[in-house]
Simulated scan of single mutants.
Amino acid sequence: MMISRISIIIVLSCIITSTRAYDPDALQDLCVADKSHGTKLNGFPCKETSNITASDFFFAGISKPAVINSTSGSAVTGANVEKIPGLNTLSVSLARIDYAPGGLNPPHTHPRATEVVYVLEGELEVGFITTANKLFSKTIKIGEVFVFPRGLVHFQKNNGKSPASVLSAFNSQLPGTVSVAAALFATEPALPEDVLTKTFQVGTKMVDKIKERLATKK
């Protein structure tokens, strides 16, 4: 009986450990981000309690579709700690993504969070790629949900003829985004050209052409 109880405790401990948030756990009720402090160490320092207001926990920026003016045909509006100081240390954030007809949120990763998307409008083709180079993709519609595991390359594309939008949830106050194309072809300073030509098995003219096209997006 004692061995069984010990086994249960060990299993529960493993489950709790594996499901904890990626961001540091909060040790107080509130730690509203004080961005004026100038210091940032794995999060923002806390604002003085006397200076906290309800506005620190409010953001209206994702209530309406964003204006889409990117060449990819999508626009991301983040609702993270940079927009909502009250999210500091709470390990959660949102984003709204709007897509023009045929619009694409290009392949990218979130190094600090798993993402869950909920379709508000339209129909999208979504997918992610594992470290074994296996693609998991699906068409999702209004009211449906899809999950992108933390750190894996993923995308969303509006295959319809009407606008589409999703609400994304993250288990991080600031999940970060690494765009695959920009990370390879638009870094500063630039990656050595021979790294890119050997990686993609193309000539320097093709690499330069991609860099030029990405530069026009800025």
Rank of each mutant, 00 (worst) to 15 (best):
S36Y: 08
G143P: 04
Y118E: 04
S55M: 13
L90T: 05
F136K: 10
V207W: 02
K40Y: 15
F155M: 04
V81S: 05
V202G: 09
P107T: 01
D56W: 10
F146T: 00
K161N: 15
P149G: 04
T204V: 15
T53W: 11
E48N: 10
V92L: 15
F185G: 00
K209R: 10
L174C: 03
S172M: 06
P189K: 06
K40V: 13
S165Y: 10
L135E: 08
L214E: 03
K141P: 02
V180I: 15
I140N: 02
M206K: 13
L196P: 01
K209M: 05
A181I: 09
K218D: 08
Y118V: 12
P24L: 09
S4C: 10
S172W: 04
L94Y: 13
A95F: 09
A100R: 11
D29P: 12
F59N: 12
T109E: 03
P163Q: 05
K35M: 15
I97N: 03
F146N: 00
G143S: 14
I52L: 09
I8C: 11
G86I: 00
G38C: 11
V67L: 14
V153S: 08
K138T: 11
A181N: 06
I97A: 06
V11Y: 13
C31W: 00
P85W: 06
V202Y: 07
T77K: 12
I3K: 12
F57K: 07
P85H: 10
T204S: 15
Y22Q: 12
A181R: 04
T77M: 13
E212R: 11
K141Y: 10
G102E: 08
T139P: 00
V126M: 12
G102W: 10
V119F: 07
K198V: 03
G203Q: 07
H110G: 02
N69D: 15
Q173I: 02
D98C: 09
A66C: 13
N88R: 14
T199D: 01
T114M: 13
A33G: 07
T197E: 07
A186I: 00
D56V: 06
S168R: 01
G78K: 13
V207N: 03
G203D: 15
P85R: 08
T187V: 03
G86W: 03
A186W: 04
Q173W: 01
H154N: 08
P149R: 05
F44M: 08
K138E: 14
Q201S: 10
L174S: 15
I10C: 06
K134P: 00
S93R: 03
P163R: 11
S168P: 01
A215I: 00
F148T: 00
